[in-house]
């Protein structure tokens, strides 16, 4: 079974076991599988986009939610996620280096670079778990989920308050921030507030929410939490399975399986999967955290 044979377009489509893409069947299968997996993620991101668009003005802002950095106090919006992203991308780089070493049949090189790829993957999964922990745990302040009632916006529209999350403006707990802004379409205008008696009524009529689960979260709309868990969870599962696959192949490399076989194509195949996982993360990171 040829894998990297040189094929030109005339012979490629002509049969005789030539691949039109110059790739062996295993690699081709991996490409098509990745295409189908890409569509699963597309389905989820499309669903996310659907709601993000519908609830655009009241959707929580990721930079207000993901502000923690391990072992450091203070407010570091999206810094840790950025670090995670950097680490995952670097692990793709080390993977490329592993594949390149494989092309030269450099067993030691493959071992070295695959090792760092696995380490990068594990750090990412661990970090994601840490993010989940903090997301679920929530802030000390928490938020108030409002009860039945209505609130009239400056432009006259009346909104139902049932289920709406109102966050404390600061530790003094003097004002509750509503998800609606003073000027509806202007993302820079301030959030509307409840103070004084109106605030106390809201606290009495609602209930406190700390942290996040699949039905409520203190950051805002329930779907924000739902999508966070589901999309990062689905992606995290892929990363974890990628780490497991990489580890199995890593062991095989050490045992000399591919050196004996005469090629490191298996490393290439899991490399493809790993790059895919990385690429999906770039999309998730962009659409979920940045946009």
């Amino acid at each position: 079974m040829s894998h990297t044979a040189v094929v030109d377009s005339k012979t490629a489509w002509a049969g005789d076991n030539n691949s039109p893409f110059g790739a062996g069947y295993g690699k081709l299968m991996m490409w098509f599988f990745l295409m189908s997996d890409a569509l699963s993620f597309t389905g989820f991101l499309a669903a996310y986009g659907f709601y993000r668009h519908s609830y655009g003005d009241i959707w929580p802002s990721a930079e207000n939610v993901f502000t923690h950095f391990p072992f450091m106090h203070g407010h570091h919006p999206l810094l840790y996620v950025a670090l995670m992203t950097f680490i995952l991308i670097m692990s793709s780089v080390t993977m490329v280096l592993a594949v390149e070493a494989g092309h030269r049949m450099d067993k030691k090189g493959v071992i070295k670079w695959m090792f760092w790829t696995i380490v990068g993957g594990l750090i990412f999964v661990g970090s994601q778990a840490w993010e989940w922990y903090h997301f679920i745990h929530g802030t000390e302040l928490g938020a108030i989920e409002l009860g039945i009632g209505t609130y009239t916006l400056p432009d006259g529209t009346v909104e139902h308050t049932q289920g709406i999350i109102a966050r404390w403006a600061d530790e003094s707990k003097q004002a509750l921030l509503l998800p609606w802004r003073e000027v509806a379409t202007d993302n820079t205008s301030a959030y509307l507030q409840l103070t004084g008696q109106a605030m106390q009524d809201a606290v009495a009529g609602g209930h406190e929410v700390y942290g996040a689960n699949l039905t409520h979260n203190e950051y805002g709309h329930p779907l924000f939490g739902d999508f966070f868990f589901f999309i990062t969870g689905f992606h995290g599962t892929h990363v974890f399975s990628g780490v497991v696959l990489n580890f199995i192949i890593f062991v095989n490399v050490i045992m000399g399986t591919y050196q004996k076989r005469g090629h490191y194509e298996m490393v290439e195949k899991v490399g493809l999967y790993w790059h895919f996982v990385d690429l999906v993360w770039v999309f998730v990171f962009t659409f979920f955290y940045l946009v």
Binding site: W13, A14, G15, D16, N17, N18, S19, P20, F21, G24, Y25, L28
Partner: peptide, 11 residues
Amino acid sequence: FNMRTKGMSMT
């Protein structure tokens, strides 16, 4: 794609 016999072009 990959396993057609000799002479079996796509067309």
